[in-house]
């Protein structure tokens, strides 16, 4: 009897909470749709720069679905300047392949395709069966580069973002639910003071958390670290500030801790998809652009540049500027959102 009464009550509560119901049924659809778009996207074309290659080799490469960019000469900047995935220089006895290697899986594919193409064109053009010696270089990382090295920097940014978002959001939410926020607003405190206090209070925890995450990834997980650790911390702190202000802002639209958690599949998960952990080059261009409205996209790009490519803050200033813009926007919206309680 008691059990059935409990079950009845729980079901009734669930039916009264339309949002939880909607989440239960609609959120999986959303996430599945996103995953479909990402994994079903066509493989992007591999672009290979070719120096001194024969017509035959270029044809063989193109028949394997590789876009060949004929070049006269090649220097250090050639790959970046022509947005190439690799550069093949054919010399007298052999060939030298330089792989861009931002995506190790793609780089390995290109290496295999090129090696096969070389032996194929070689076999058809002459009777020499020794084959061509293919020497391989990597622009970033090396053949040991694991996917983790590339997505590691993104994951660091993601976890900083995710936890700061959740903790700060639930923090302010508890104040709303318990009525203490209302009581605080019945004192002469100004709205921006409340927002500033929240940013500072949780900001301190965010600084500590960020520092621990960064040091742990680099010194314990041995994540690839080409740039300066201080630059990594600066980027993560900016990312944490965005997460903090976004978490507080979204808590305005949540009625309980559970509803706050419901923002995860809506706000956090899509950011993972577009942050560069999954290859999205194959997606339609307009779909790729969805990433540009997501803070993690910029944070991940900056982190990847510093940690993997060894660039400095000067190289990623545009990313930092966008992140700062997001933070300012969310902070301003927070101050406005508190108007719901008190106009002044």
């Amino acid at each position: 009897m008691r059990i059935s009464a409990l079950v009845k009550r729980i079901m009734l509560q669930m039916f009264r909470d339309k949002r939880t119901l909607a989440l239960l049924f609609l959120a999986p659809l959303l996430v599945l749709t996103l995953m479909y778009l990402i994994f079903d996207g066509n493989d992007s074309d591999l672009r290979l720069g070719l120096v001194d290659g024969s017509e035959g080799l270029a044809d063989v490469l193109e028949s394997r679905g590789i876009e060949v960019v004929p070049l006269e000469t090649a220097g250090d900047e050639t790959i970046a300047a022509n947005k190439l995935d690799g550069l093949l220089e054919v010399t007298g006895e052999g060939a030298e392949l330089t792989l861009e290697n931002s995506d190790p899986t793609q780089a390995r594919g290109l290496l295999a395709q090129t090696a096969q193409a070389l032996s194929q064109s070689d076999g058809t053009s002459s009777s020499n069966t020794d084959g061509i010696v293919l020497e391989t270089n990597y622009l970033y990382g090396n053949e040991e580069t694991e996917l983790f090295d590339v997505i590691g920097p993104i994951l660091v940014g993601f976890f900083v973002f995710f936890f700061v978002f959740l903790i700060s959001g639930i923090g302010l939410l508890k104040e709303r639910v318990s009525g203490t926020l209302e009581r605080v607003l019945a004192t002469p405190v100004k709205r921006w003071e409340i927002v500033a206090a929240y940013l500072t209070g949780f900001g301190i925890f965010a600084v500590i958390q960020t520092t621990i995450v960064v040091f742990f990834s680099i010194y314990v997980l041995d994540m690839v670290m080409e740039g300066s650790i201080w630059h990594v911390i600066v980027i993560n702190l900016l990312l944490a500030l965005v997460a903090l202000s976004l978490g507080i802002l979204l808590s305005t639209f949540a009625g309980s801790e559970f509803q706050m958690v419901q923002f995860i599949p809506l706000v956090i998960v899509p950011q993972i998809f577009f942050s560069g952990i999954f290859p999205i080059e194959g997606m339609a261009a307009w779909l790729q652009n969805i990433g540009r409205i997501m803070p993690l996209y910029y944070g991940a790009d900056a982190l990847k540049s510093v940690m993997y490519r060894g660039e400095g803050l000067g190289d990623v200033w545009a990313d930092l500027l966008v992140l700062a813009g997001f933070a300012l926007l969310f902070i301003a919206l927070n101050i406005v959102a508190l108007k719901r309680y008190r106009k002044l």
Partner: peptide
């Protein structure tokens, strides 16, 4: 607000 003392229904 400096001159108002408010006690809400919930203990807050």
């Amino acid at each position: 607000l400096q001159d108002i003392g408010y006690m809400a229904q919930s203990d807050a």
